[in-house]
Design a protein around this nucleic acid. Structure first.
Length: 1266
RNA sequence: GCCCUGGUGGUGGAAUUGGUAGACACGCAGGACUUAAAAUCCUGUGUCUUCGCGGACGUACGGGUUCAAGUCCCGUCUGGGGUACCA
């Protein structure tokens, strides 16, 4: 019998499905093991060979652990909410639910073919109401919690309210919004409901807050930071803008430190942990406050005077300015030297050049200190000119300016002394900085965050983010226009633009100053968009000498650069371009910090800052709160409604809040999200509820008072656990028949507990047991009571349900339809109704807890029972792509920690061990083409276009441009080590794809016709193609599906080959070339069981099952145990590619030994079964086993079989191996040395010399140093 | 820029703690079987050199440590991924 993989694989896949071979047990004696894959988003394109890579690896582990005696949980499901299905819905109108279901069906079929050992009974789909009910429930838990810094965990919001009621918020130490005002208990009680709600919102872990968000207009939604790549949306690649919006967010920042610390406990790759560390971005520094000095008086305040820098004579101001401008463009060499020096030499004051003063234009002017520097050219030497100069000086002096003059030569030859003189002059004339500005200090402060408090004396300006709240207040009148213009532009710049011009330096001066906390100097306040509003305080103290960004800004605007840290190289900053950012060196020019090392200076600076009350040590995180709302349709509705503008969460019993139907999947005309289109989709408290009407609490259906409500609720929970057979059958049927409305069982209505109820349809179904025969009266009264609260009631007897459940369901359906038609909706209900939140949850909501749902996926009363989450605990092994490093993997850790804090689960990290599988890229096939003519779209007209396919190596001259196009990989042959497209396949391609209709190979007559000049002979049979590695995608015609491979070679081959390609974590292009190797291996394995035997007298060989019970030889046992050992080690370190090699070695050796012994082959099958389960199961059965191989004990290797009698010692001279020597393993190192020394070959290599040293490593190697 | 990774034959990749570099597989070359093809099997295959035995050189490059380096250390180049005015 030949190896018929198709038959074997189909049969075994069916067997596993029927026998539920891989169903996990919720308990038992075996230790548990939880292997999880990242569940896929079911896209329309289906699976390609890259997708199953990680699933195969996890399946090998799952199967291996089963062999090792573990109770394995290995589930699979679908992350089925998401943008693509919705985008498709927008285009086609097809409901995303349908698209998703179709895609899932395809996925499932593809997955089943590969033979995974998933426990499909536990499947989850995030878009199923039974699932997202609990996603919504978790949202509500998070909404109802706050982060208490004292206990360092999230707590129920009620503990905060209690706190408010007793002490106000003065003693509260919480993670909350920054602008929360303090209040007393009395004030709290006096607040209105709206005010209280607003305050609580500032503390809630899930909150509605105004923040700058990433808005994507094309997708019509906001996006989280991790959903943006390179400034455009990850899905679709659309531009993203910054926009101030009110949005649901999650206070993940509260967990920044714990998310960081938790990483140390995890067995994840260092690179992945690093990615998270970077994303969280902890930086330790200090906050520091700079006192704001009031702006110079505005012209208004001074009485309509022109700005202070307009010092020219008013009558001729225009002429002067023009002249000055001309002069500025037309400067002498000397003027330029001094100008550059004045700008850069940190004179600490601002100079202007060619500035009008009275009727003159002075060369350089410092307005602040009333100093003029003039440069005298050659012609100044004449007497006439000297007189003129003197007169000029007098006029300037009269204007209140001091004047100093330098000659060209002085500047050129001795710039330093010139600068020194200017300095002295400045010092002599300078008023104190504060006097100069005529300044009074204000009570305002600018608070900055810095990680370099040691460089405080290097601060030469302060920069605010354009959005900083003080910007408007600090801007002086004369800077107002410029600042406003700048702020407007900066605010509207999209993320992409900002990223694109990182090097473009922009900014504007406010006109105001702060006071340096230690020197008292006046420091200008600038605005620059290199400062981010959202990080730290939105303001920085700029130290251009020691921060590259500050440096560029200072250079660009000619601001002073003050060096305060001397690096080890002793090069001063003026000698090199750029800032010195390193955190090592000695402090200079820094008063009390002088001479200290950076580290010590930091400590001292912080101490001093804290002592003087200027600020304090502070930690900042780069991590931002996660935006949670999405203005999209295909996601979980956020279970919130608004009453009087106050958001309320739905009650647990009202969940799920089912996604409503809409006419279009687009935003409304007013820009509201799609959910706003839903008709009558409003929150409706019951009209006749005692607390109904305007003041209704969000309990809707209960008609009894609270005390009895609590009692009945407890009872209903008890009843749910204690159902009769008929009730159980009906419940199953109701759930399975998907009646379009949701039923609850043993639900409290008024004072009664009804068997089944649909709150939506207001329909109660009651099951009457035997006792009802005697209590008809009571039942009737009960029915009446229910009807009085607006419910219809139908009753079924036990018999009806047990014997004709179909009919019962039919009746329910009919009643339901009737009921729904008469039932008034929304506002018509009589009572009040309130709008729901129209945003849906982001994609990461459902995936942040799915690993918990698998533990208890059918639980309808809890997200997962405590018993089961305690049993399954953490995921033991999680496999998935590294692209989720800063998204999913951070959020899932966040939710796990919250759920733990709130007491719902016992673990605080979702997955102990995580492995990233590499990406499998596609191998595209490119052909060079040149096209002639044009395509006509009219079907009646033949296309006049002809496209010639050229060889990869085509050399020659084309009359038209050659373009590379993708050739579908299915049509490409691999021959003689080259990828080629044959004539035959080209013809097929033309038949199959209209796109290639006008394609043809180039021939000689074409060349003549179109003037194509060729330099080598044309091949008319095939052309060679160029291979390019890129992403697998339909448009690149390089997709290879697992189905293709399974069809040709079988799933076992596919599994082995995917593993054989290389290390799991490495990315690699898909290449089918080597697949014959692993397929051949399986055939070779098969032949160990079905060796070729001569049948009868004929010469033909046939394969008969032939396994003997003979005793294995020592060599065979060695082969087996060597393999067991290697495989076990390989699996444990996830080195699947080497496992496959080892299987090949083993089978090769056994084939050589013609081994067909059960004692060898049986354990080998178990080893192989995780990798190639179908063939293993089949041969296992052939060996006479009746049970599946899947739980057969994994063989243990016996060291005894591996011990060799002899060791083949390599003998090396000076580290170079010259020959080997087979010696008994029992020999000591001494004996080995003696033997080797005595060896004749040794003598040859020693050439008579005595070795200096002989090293013998026992059982390894001998080395002689000559 | 910063962080993380990798660089080994024609190709994918082995070499787990420093101990015979290139396992295993593909490809290629030659051969067997076959009318032929497929399938299967056998032999060879790092580079240079030599008729051959053999010899020399080889893990991106340059140094170093060591009896011994793909592996450890220092420096440089380079591919890939992540991240970015985060103060």
């Amino acid at each position: 019998m030949e190896y018929d993989f198709k038959k074997i694989e189909t049969e075994w896949q069916a067997y596993w499905a029927i026998h539920k071979t891989f169903a996990a047990k919720d308990g038992g004696d075996k230790p548990k093991y939880y292997v999880l894959d990242m569940f896929p988003y079911p896209s329309g394109a289906g699976l390609h060979v890259g997708h199953p890579l990680g699933y195969i690896a996890s399946d090998i582990i799952a199967r291996f652990k089963r062999h090792k005696g573990f109770n394995v949980l290995h589930p699979m499901g679908y992350d089925s909410f998401g943008l693509p299905a919705e985008q498709y819905a927008i285009q086609t109108g097809q409901h995303p639910k349908i698209t998703t279901e179709q895609n899932i069906a395809v996925y499932r079929k593809q997955l089943d073919k590969i033979g995974f050992s998933f426990d499909w009974d536990r499947e989850v789909r995030t878009s199923n109401p039974e699932y997202y009910k609990w996603t919504q429930w978790i949202f509500i838990q998070i909404f109802n919690s706050w982060y208490n810094n004292n206990s360092n965990k999230a707590e129920n919001i009620s503990t905060l309210i209690t706190e408010f009621e007793t002490d106000g918020n003065t003693k509260v130490n919480a993670v909350c919004d920054e602008n929360v005002k303090s209040f007393t208990a009395a004030e709290w009680k006096a607040f209105s409901e709206k005010e209280q709600s607003d305050i609580l919102m500032a503390y809630r872990m899930a909150y509605l807050g105004e923040a700058y968000v990433n808005w994507c207009p094309q997708l019509g939604t906001v996006l989280a930071n991790d959903e943006i790549k390179d400034g455009v949306s990850e899905r679709g690649g659309y531009p993203v803008e910054r926009k101030l919006m009110k949005q649901w967010s999650m206070r993940i920042t509260a967990y920044a430190q714990r998310l960081l610390d938790g990483l140390d406990t995890l067995d994840w790759t260092e690179s992945l942990k690093d990615a998270q560390r970077n994303w969280i971005g902890k930086s330790v520094g200090t906050s520091l406050r700079f006192k704001v000095l009031t702006p110079n008086p505005s012209p208004k305040e001074r009485g309509a005077e022109p700005p202070s820098y307009l010092t020219g004579k008013k009558e001729i101001a225009v002429d002067l300015l023009q002249k000055a401008k001309a002069n500025r463009k037309n400067y002498t060499e000397t003027e330029d030297i001094i100008w550059q020096a004045l700008r850069n030499k940190k004179l600490d004051v601002k100079f202007r050049r060619q500035h009008p003063i009275d009727k003159f234009i002075a060369d350089f002017v410092c307005l602040d200190q009333h100093l003029i520097v003039e440069i005298d050219g050659e012609y100044h030497n004449s007497n006439e000119q000297q007189e003129l100069d003197e007169a000029r000086t007098i006029v300037l002096r009269l204007n209140g300016f001091n004047v100093i003059r330098f000659t060209n030569n002085e500047v050129k030859n001795n710039l330093d002394s010139v600068l020194e003189k200017i300095k002295q002059e400045l010092a002599a004339t300078a008023p104190s900085p504060l006097e100069r500005a005529g300044v009074r200090t204000t009570s305002e402060y600018i608070e900055v965050f810095t990680t370099r408090p040691d460089t405080i004396f290097g601060v030469s300006f302060v920069t605010l983010a354009p959005e900083h709240e003080l910007v408007a207040g600090l801007t002086t009148a004369e800077n107002k226009t410029a600042v406003e213009e700048y702020v407007t532009i900066a605010k509207n710049r999209s993320e992409r633009e900002r990223q694109a011009d990182v090097n473009k330096i922009t900014g504007v001066f406010t006109g105001s100053y702060v006071e340096h906390p230690f020197t008292g100097k006046q420091i200008p306040i600038w605005i620059g968009d290199y400062v981010l509003a959202g990080y730290g305080t939105g303001a920085v103290m700029a130290v251009p000498a020691h921060d590259s960004r500050d440096y560029s800004f200072a250079k660009h605007f000619g601001l002073p650069i003050l060096e305060v840290v001397q690096g080890t190289s002793n090069v001063t900053l003026s000698e090199v371009e750029g800032s010195y950012d390193a955190k090592e060196g000695k402090l200079i020019n820094s008063d009390f910090l002088n001479g200290l090392e950076v580290k010590d200076a930091m400590k001292k600076a912080i101490a001093e800052i804290e002592k003087q009350g200027l600020g304090k040590g502070k930690v900042n995180f780069r991590l931002r709160d996660a935006v949670f709302g999405r203005q999209r349709y295909w996601g979980e509705p956020i279970p919130v409604y608004y009453k009087n503008d106050i958001p309320y969460a739905l009650n647990e019993s009202e969940l799920p809040l089912v996604l409503p139907e809409v006419d279009k999947y687009l935003p409304t005309e007013d820009g509201e999200p799609p959910l706003a289109r839903a008709k009558n989709w409003r929150y409706k408290p019951l009209s006749n509820s005692p607390q109904g009407g305007e003041d209704a609490k969000p309990h809707t259906w209960q008609t009894a008072g609270n005390s009895s409500y609590n009692f009945t609720k407890e009872k209903s929970q008890e009843l749910r656990k204690n159902q009769t057979e008929a009730e159980e059958i009906l419940w199953e049927a109701i759930r399975k028949k998907s009646l379009d409305v949701k039923f609850r069982r043993q639900h409290v209505i008024g004072a009664s507990i009804v068997d089944f109820v649909s709150l939506e349809a207001k329909l109660v179904i009651e099951v009457d047991g035997k006792i009802h025969l005697e209590q008809k009266d009571y039942d009737e009264a009960r029915t009446k009571e229910l009807e009085s609260v607006g419910f219809s009631v139908i009753r079924f007897s036990n018999e009806e349900i047990l014997h004709d459940i179909e009919n019962v369901i039919l009746k329910i359906k009919t009643t339901l339809n009737a009921q729904l038609q008469v039932l008034p909706h929304g506002e018509d209900l009589g009572g009040a109704s309130y709008p729901y939140e129209h945003s849906t949850m982001p994609g990461w909501a459902g995936s942040s807890w799915y690993f918990l749902r698998y533990m208890d996926s059918h639980n309808s009363t809890e997200f997962a029972s405590k018993k089961l989450t305690d049993y399954w605990k953490q995921v033991d092994l999680y496999i998935g792509g590294s692209e989720h490093a800063t998204g999913h993997l951070l959020y899932v850790r966040f939710w796990t920690k919250i759920l733990k804090d709130l007491g719902h689960i016992a673990i605080d990290e979702p997955a102990k061990k995580l492995i990233n599988q590499g990406m499998i890229q596609g191998l595209s096939m490119m052909a060079r083409t040149t096209s002639i003519g044009s395509v006509t779209l009219d079907n009646n007209m033949p296309s006049t276009r002809r496209t010639f396919l050229l060889d990869k190596n085509f050399s020659g001259k084309l009359p038209f441009q050659d373009i590379e196009i993708h050739i579908p990989v299915d049509y490409v042959n691999f021959q003689d080590g080259k990828y080629v497209l044959t004539k035959e396949n080209l013809n097929k391609l033309i038949e199959d794809h209209t796109r290639f209709t006008d394609f043809q190979f180039l021939n000689e007559s074409d060349c003549e016709e179109f003037g194509i000049i060729i330099t080598e002979e044309l091949n008319s049979d095939f052309i060679q193609l160029k291979e390019v590695v890129e992403k697998m995608s339909k448009s690149k015609y390089n997709v290879v599906t697992p189905d293709d491979i399974a069809e040709k070679f079988g799933s076992d081959t596919l599994r082995l080959y995917e593993m054989f390609l290389g290390p799991l974590e490495q990315s690699k292009p898909w290449n089918t070339n080597g697949i014959t190797g692993v397929h051949g291996f399986l055939k070779k394995l098969w032949r160990l069981f079905y060796p070729a035997v001569q049948s009868d007298a004929s010469t033909t060989l046939s394969n008969q099952f032939n396994v003997t019970n003979d005793e294995p030889t020592k060599g065979e046992l060695k082969t087996l145990h060597k393999t067991i050992k290697k495989i076990t080690e390989d699996i444990e370190r996830f080195s699947f590619n080497t496992s496959v090699s080892n299987f090949m070695i083993c089978v090769n050796e056994l084939t050589d030994a013609k081994c067909n012994k059960r004692a060898i082959l049986e354990p080998l099958l178990i080893c192989l079964s995780p990798y190639a389960p179908h063939i293993a199961e089949e041969l296992w059965k052939q060996l006479g086993h009746t049970e599946s191989i899947s739980t057969a004990a994994f063989p243990l290797f016996n060291e005894a079989y591996l011990v060799d009698d002899t060791i083949n010692y390599p003998v090396s001279f000076n580290g170079k191996v010259k020959f080997t020597l087979e010696l008994a393993a029992t020999l000591s190192t001494q004996e080995v040395e003696t033997i080797v020394r005595a060896n004749e070959q040794t003598a040859k290599f020693l050439d008579g010399k005595e070795p200096k040293k002989v090293i013998v490593v026992h059982k390894k190697i001998v080395n002689m140093v000559v």
